[in-house]
Design a protein around this nucleic acid. Sequence first.
DNA 1: GCCAACGTTGGC
DNA 2: GCCAACGTTGGC
Length: 138
Amino acid sequence: MNYWLFKSEPSVWSWDMQVEKGDTGEEWDGVRNYQARNFMRDMKIGDLGFFYHSQSEKAVVGIVEVIAEAHPDSTTDDDRWECVDIKAVEPLKSPVTLDDCKADERLSDMVLVKNSRLSVQPVTAEEWKIVRALGGLS
DNA sequence: GCCAACGTTGGC
DNA sequence: GCCAACGTTGGC
């Protein structure tokens, strides 16, 4: 079991839109970055991830689950790009902001803090527990 | 809206 | 294979 973080601009694809898709889930398409794609290739069904809103909100808002492993991105003919499908699992009781992560020294190595531009990131088991707790989930 | 950081592209 | 130019992202 591995943990991840999916970043999205809420004006393009928000947590609410993801929740509306229910158990059907949705392709995490549009990724055009090799590092991010490689992480998606490593994902397995059942892996969990944080759903992060970039731009104005800058906060982890929910938890998602990988429901399909990497497959060609349907939004492009370019076969270099692949994506996974994810579904919403549950929202955080309270969003965990980027500032919250920066303020917690246990999270100082989080990719979110160190490399803010990477749109799909790995999260360690330790970071997973800490952020979940900060978000009000046991 | 600006700008710094970073990744990608293409010419050599 | 290097590196300058360019485009994109995301925090501020």
